[in-house]
Computed example of a mutant assay.
Amino acid sequence: MDIDTRLLRYFATVAEEGHLTRAAERLFISQPALTKQIKQLEAQLGVELFTRSRTGMSLTDAGRMLAERVPIVLEDWDIALRETRGAASRASHVLRVGFVASAANESTQKIIGSFARYRPGWRVEMRQTGWSDPTAGLADGQVDVALLRLPFPGQDALRVEVLITEPRWVGIPSTHPLAELAEIPFRQLWDEPFVATPTESGWWRDYWLATDERGGRPVKIGAIAQNPDEWLTAIANGYGVSLTPEATARFYQRPGVTYRPVTGVSSSQVGVAWAPAGDNDAVIGDFVRACLRHRTPTTVEPDTRTPREEAGSG
């Protein structure tokens, strides 16, 4: 019997969390979709894996047996998949770099230039994903390394070096009365409808809605956007406002959208991220070293350095 590894991954997350809602947030999918996938796995195996109750999901005897073995299977498969894809890209001297929106802002081209000097003959292939995957393909091995907005779900399981720290601004319809202000206190935005990322993006969505910085005030959702173009269109059409990095005002100009600094809300960061398996990969190490050469002065220095960075400043 052949089982989709995606179903096993979903099962393992539910088994670990013991709760569908928390598992769905970790997996960046909706709870109904996750429920459907678990039922599909049970149907294929012909056994019941969970006992469902109001308090959560508890494993059956069959579920516990599967839960003991699935993590090993998934780990071996992830390693095989990552090494297979990595071997293909290495053979063609291509480094796959994921990103979601503006990558590392204006430093992106400088980073690629430094990497090219470290690795003559190599090419950086930039791969952009939608907002439903804040890891930009890093979590499932689609890319070797990524330039990402921090924080993001799954960050604790990866290696991350902070490169940029910048304030959060707000994108607002140009006709909105608040657009006349030079800067906007976040408190004045609490009752505004917001343009949000998809629910699949988990607590990354909550971060950009600043749910923890509203004094307990609930968020009003005016529209959902999958990517920057949908986001800009929703704001220009007056469906809502949205917090965004300061760099967005430079990279994403659109008629009908005005950007303003926001006070009373925390800053945003950009980091370079890679899987722990890449610690001994000299090519990934050189890319990280290139990133660190162009860290912005406002960024707080990290407590630790990558092995490649310790070897020399380049």
Rank of each mutant, 00 (worst) to 15 (best):
D2A: 10
D4N: 12
R6I: 14
Y10E: 08
L20D: 04
L20P: 07
L20N: 02
A23T: 07
E25S: 14
R26V: 14
F28D: 12
F28R: 11
A33G: 07
T35Y: 10
E42P: 03
G46W: 03
V47H: 02
L49A: 00
L49H: 01
F50A: 00
R52Q: 13
S53F: 00
R54N: 08
G63I: 00
G63W: 00
G63D: 01
G63L: 01
G63F: 00
L66K: 05
E68A: 12
P71M: 03
P71D: 04
E75F: 06
E75D: 05
D78E: 09
I79V: 12
R82K: 12
T84R: 14
R85A: 11
G86I: 13
A87I: 14
A88Q: 11
R90G: 07
S92E: 08
V94P: 11
L95D: 07
V100Q: 07
A101P: 03
S102T: 14
A103M: 01
N105W: 14
N105S: 13
E106W: 15
E106G: 10
S107I: 12
T108I: 15
Q109T: 11
S114M: 10
Y118I: 14
R119I: 04
R119V: 08
R123A: 13
V124C: 11
E125Q: 08
E125G: 06
M126N: 04
R127K: 14
T129R: 13
G130A: 07
G130S: 06
S132T: 10
D133P: 05
D133M: 04
V143D: 03
A146E: 02
R149H: 14
L150T: 01
L150V: 02
P151N: 00
P153H: 03
G154W: 04
A157S: 08
R159K: 09
V160C: 01
V162M: 11
R168S: 06
W169F: 02
W169P: 03
I172R: 02
P173T: 06
T175F: 15
L178S: 00
L178Q: 03
E180G: 12
A182H: 02
R187N: 05
W190C: 03
D191H: 08
F194T: 02
F194N: 00
T199R: 12
E200D: 15
E200V: 14
D206F: 04
D206C: 00
L209T: 05
L209A: 01
L209Y: 05
T211P: 08
G216N: 01
G222Q: 04
A225T: 03
D229K: 11
D229T: 15
E230W: 11
A236L: 07
N237W: 10
G238P: 05
G240I: 02
G240E: 02
V241S: 10
T244V: 15
T244N: 06
P245Q: 02
T248I: 10
R254P: 15
P255N: 05
G256Y: 04
V257G: 05
V257T: 07
Y259M: 04
Y259Q: 05
R260F: 00
V262Q: 03
V262S: 02
G264P: 01
S268R: 01
S268G: 06
V272P: 09
A277H: 13
A282H: 14
G285W: 06
F287S: 13
A290L: 01
H294Y: 04
T298N: 15
T298E: 10
T299V: 07
E301H: 15
R308V: 08
E310K: 13
G312R: 08
G312W: 08
